[in-house]
Amino acid sequence: MTGEGSHDFARARRILKTDEFSSVFRLRPTQKSAHFVLYTRPSPLPHARLGIVAAKRFAPRAVTRNTIKRVTRELFRTHEIQAVDCIVRLARPVNTKAGPATNSALKRLLHAELSRLLASQRPRRPVGPAPAPPTP
């Protein structure tokens, strides 16, 4: 199923090329959370696109990096986001090599943090004229 409002993560909804990542990174971060930084730029396309950067130095185990990517994609698919190019970058360590690679507490933490970041990118509703004050 493809089309507006679908829950797929098609290739057209991904930021894949280095120059596309660079053009978004050139701008200042839009939002920050405890572990993530969100960069955005208006998209030339009619839909939002997502790029994810999870560096090995902040998440040493592949299973943790994959969990971060999976949770981010799931939230991106299910949130209504305005037409922007978004890059979610892991900016602080989420766990260590000694700790568990992934668990339900980590997933809940990631889900809550990423949800707040992506919620900031919901489409803005047009602001109409101010309502007239009621007359007595």
Rank of each mutant, 00 (worst) to 15 (best):
P93L: 03
K32I: 05
D19E: 02
R41F: 05
R116K: 14
K56R: 15
S120C: 14
F9Y: 03
R125Q: 12
S6N: 04
F9Q: 00
H111I: 02
P126V: 02
S120D: 06
E20I: 03
A54I: 13
A12Q: 04
I81W: 04
P60N: 11
L75V: 05
V63P: 08
A112Y: 13
S104P: 11
G99Y: 11
V127Y: 07
I15N: 00
H79R: 06
S43R: 08
Q82C: 05
G128I: 01
F58P: 11
R11F: 02
A105V: 14
A62Q: 13
T135N: 04
P44V: 15
R65W: 11
D85G: 03
A34H: 13
R124G: 00
N66T: 10
F36I: 10
A119L: 07
G99W: 13
G128F: 03
L50Q: 03
P29Q: 10
F58Y: 15
Q121I: 05
E80Y: 06
P129A: 09
F25M: 03
R125V: 10
M1D: 03
T102M: 14
R122F: 01
T72H: 05
E4M: 01
S22G: 09
A10S: 09
A10K: 01
A55E: 14
R77W: 00
V94C: 12
T18S: 05
